[in-house]
Amino acid sequence: MPGKALSLRLETSASDIVEIAALRGRARELERVALGRGVQLPALGRALAATDHLALCVRPERWLILTPPAAAGASAAVWQAVCAGLGAALDLSSGLNALELTGSVAREVLVRSCRIDLDPDAFPVGAACATIMVQVPVILVALASGVLLLTPASTARHFHEWLMSSAKTFGFMPPSHLNGAAVSDDQLS
């Protein structure tokens, strides 16, 4: 489809990820104390971005809170104190890898494996879901800038390789050939 402005950017981003999960009947309390710490916990299937964090919810009464990298486990330790008696807070910074796919064809690339309806009407900015892509678990978050993908660390390379190859098969953007398309592939650990 020549003539169509196409771009795709795939970046790995480092962030601290803490999962907090409410004990039975404690979700409302947990939401209150989180709000007290300046974090509004979103409803199921939603994500809320603030200047210093992103909170999302893809499992009932469980939230992922992404913050810029700090000392290992520091964020989890803070949340463990917040959650005491109400739930659990676990550091998943190493367990999940974050990728961000931006550009006009981002969703077109994703539907090569994503079985979720990614139409902007069905999956608008602020939506979040957990699903399976290329046989591995993936959490998708629709951001204004693109789609954030969280995938288990052990399969992150597999997922990344598939994204790259799928984008190429797409015909739009072999990274070395297409002007204006940027693909950073080097930061993957």
Binding site: L44, G45, V58, R59, P60, R115, I116, C129, A130, T131, I132
Partner: peptide
């Protein structure tokens, strides 16, 4: 009830 309509392969 939590995630909406999904393919069988997720279950």
């Amino acid at each position: 009830p939590w995630c909406g309509e999904r393919d069988e392969t997720e279950f």
